[in-house]
Design a binder for these strands. Structure first.
Lengths: 223, 223
DNA sequence: ACATTATTGAACAGAGTGTTGAATATTACT
DNA sequence: AGTAATATTCAACACTCTGTTCAATAATGT
């Protein structure tokens, strides 16, 4: 019985992510269906009434599940939330390999060619795939704790990997503020993109991200 | 009886802010004492166990108040939270007058003289005064919704007022991302300062903020 | 077809909520 | 000081949601 300890699962979870290949063979179909229904219920209810107002009762009613089923998989509402968030953050962690290979030279080159970073395009593609969940969680009424987690897992590492070759030596307090500054800045861009409906294509966004990196206040905005 | 509608009060609230001059004559001492105790209880309990785990019972026990007293002033836990946050955001709104008078020229001049913006120093001073509350709310376990509110009320307006003279004309989508970028960036700096214990003086922070504004990635960090 | 196991439905105690009423204690004001 | 106003206390209340258990049922994987 009781398989709560499986709440944070290895990966994939059958939620039809890009990376979830043939997840059906790993888990009982019923579990997959229940979890998917709960995810959808959480997203829609969050958009409608805000995540704080949601009770386990609401989730089960919307998901058309018995309350006992919920507790078979998750400890409570926050456990469900964290499991879904963790899945996305884990998927995003896979971009870190490309991220580590980043150098300032590449950025400058691509900037001149006006071409986007290929892995950044992939990243925005992935964010779009998870758009429904991200829109709910990053919007008002969503989980305000998710933004900072996203920032720490993605933006901070991105900025560090770009800056470390330059400022690894003179590591004073200001460099930390430098990183916080740009990490928060890129989270702001991502959040705005998702909140406003992800109208720009992934390629456009990757270009905007590059443009913003090379901008300097007070100078005219270069195309 | 029952004076809940007074939950979000005109200002000051007797919480010994800089701006609360002689607030004692405006409200019954008992109310002031109760609200102050609840504020302190919320801050300490948030630091200890995280704001989500706090119940109205906990607050009243810590504040040494009857539960009925709580409900005399606030609708629920979130109402208390919002009242305290609103008070700070309202105080911060008073800086907007100085903010509107900002021009790029002033910034460039002060940058060369390595002198901080006077009203930015005042702003960091105020943030330090509210340090206990801000540290609790901006930290892990705090209210993750407060950061974005702070960003919208302060950082976004700050960035807009600086940029509008330059980019008011060519107002394409990119400018919005530009603002989101810098607004989030400055919230990141403020948050980091408060989280790490506000070691830098207000003058130092105002200088760091100025430095960050004129920085350009890829170039060596100018002092 | 069979063994496994996820789901259902009902029931339960427990905790926290939001409200009420009368009694008590503080307060502001003259 | 005395008094009217009112904030606080204390006990009690119905209510919602929680988290758990159990036996019965249904769906699934092999």
């Amino acid at each position: 019985m009781r398989s709560v300890e499986n709440g944070t699962l290895s990966k994939g979870d059958g939620l039809d992510t890009v990376l979830a290949f043939d997840a059906t063979s790993l888990q009982d179909r019923r579990i997959t269906r229940s979890k998917r229904a709960l995810r959808a219920a959480l997203v829609s209810l969050t958009e409608e009434q805000g995540i704080d107002a949601i009770t386990v009762n609401d989730l089960c009613e919307r998901a058309d599940l018995n309350r006992g089923t919920f507790y078979n998989h998750y400890k409570d509402k926050d456990d469900l939330l964290r499991a879904l968030e963790d899945e996305i953050l884990l998927d995003l962690a896979h971009f870190q390999d490309d991220l580590a290979r980043l150098s300032m030279m590449d950025l400058v080159k691509l900037r001149l060619l006006k071409k986007p970073l290929p892995f950044l395009v992939e990243l925005f593609d992935y964010l779009r795939e998870q758009g429904d969940f991200l829109h709910a969680m990053l919007g008002p009424g969503g989980d305000p704790g998710f933004g900072p987690r996203l920032k720490d897992c993605v933006c901070s590492k991105l900025v560090w990997s770009i800056l470390h070759e330059h400022y690894a030596t003179d590591h004073d307090a200001f460099v930390d503020y430098y990183v916080s500054f740009y990490a928060a800045a890129y989270l702001g861009v991502i959040t705005r993109w998702i909140e406003t409906g992800m109208h720009e294509s992934s390629e456009e966004m990757a270009l905007i991200a590059l443009r913003l990196f090379f901008i300097k206040p007070g100078e005219p905005i270069a195309m």
